[in-house]
């Protein structure tokens, strides 16, 4: 039988089997869980699969991501095939007093950018969340404020199947993207970051991975609570 063709723009979203209660876990336990997630020892089931419309993705890239990258719709497929596109620094600098409005910083590659745009795409286009109920605060995190990457408001319970238990409509999300190797340290860091901010709420850790030599993106979603 012929192998199914997986398009480069295909995204498979896996949900880690159960909601992880971070409040009761020690540092070592969180480390172990991160390692188990990385090695696939915790059951994860295919939650959703979709093909990305690159024109829509570019819209979310412009509005919600942190880096100064335009036209990922034109470069996404190359990038997904494993061609790592390096960016050239702009030839001009933004005037100091206006730099804040740009709110994006320059970076040498675009994996984080694609990860953030894909997260918003998944929430809005696939799960039906209102795009105006998503707020990206990572730029403030870089200024050392205590905040998750994204604040998500879900008054209409659009995420109920993903979370699978009653939840507060305000959720916090962290995104870790990788085109190389995802490490247990990054997963652990994401869990620790969520533990600091979730309080009595739920948190979502999105691991966006583009494995070299494989078509498509693999996303793992870990739902956590105190």
């Amino acid at each position: 039988m012929a192998k199914p063709v997986i398009a480069a723009s295909n995204v498979n979203v896996f949900r880690i089997g159960h909601v992880i209660s971070l409040g009761r876990l020690s540092g070592n336990s969180i480390k172990n869980i991160a390692m188990q997630i990385l090695q696939g020892q915790i059951t994860a089931s295919l939650f959703h699969s979709f093909n990305v419309n690159l024109s829509f993705l570019e819209g979310y890239n412009i509005r919600y991501t942190e880096k100064q990258v335009k036209r990922i719709d034109e470069n996404f497929l190359d990038y997904s095939q494993g061609f790592r596109l390096f960016l050239t620094a702009p030839s001009f600098t933004v005037p100091r007093r206006l730099a804040y409005l740009v709110h994006k910083f320059f970076s040498g590659d675009v994996s984080g950018d694609i990860g953030e745009a894909l997260l918003v795409y998944f929430l809005v286009e696939e799960l039906g969340l209102d795009p105006y109920h998503i707020c990206h605060l990572r730029p403030e995190k870089r200024r050392r404020y205590l905040t998750p990457d994204f604040l998500i408001l879900d008054p209409n319970n659009m995420l109920k199947e993903l979370i699978n238990e009653p939840y507060n409509p305000l959720l916090y999300a962290e995104v870790k993207s990788s085109t190389g190797t995802m490490t247990a340290e990054r997963i652990e860091k994401g869990l620790q970051q969520l533990k600091r901010v979730i309080g009595s709420k739920h948190g979502l850790l999105f691991l966006m991975e583009k494995k070299r030599g494989h078509h498509g993106y693999i996303t793992r979603v870990i739902v956590v609570k105190r």
Binding site: S26, G27, K31, L137, Y172, K189, Q192, R196, G199
Partner: peptide, 26 residues
């Protein structure tokens, strides 16, 4: 284990600060 120590110490020493207020404040 810096990450874990910072998290645990932060949650212990929060005292009067509400995390939700702090994030809304950001």
């Amino acid at each position: 284990d810096k990450e874990d120590w910072v998290t645990e110490s932060f949650l212990k020493r929060l005292e009067d600060i509400s995390i939700d207020d702090a994030i809304a404040g950001v």
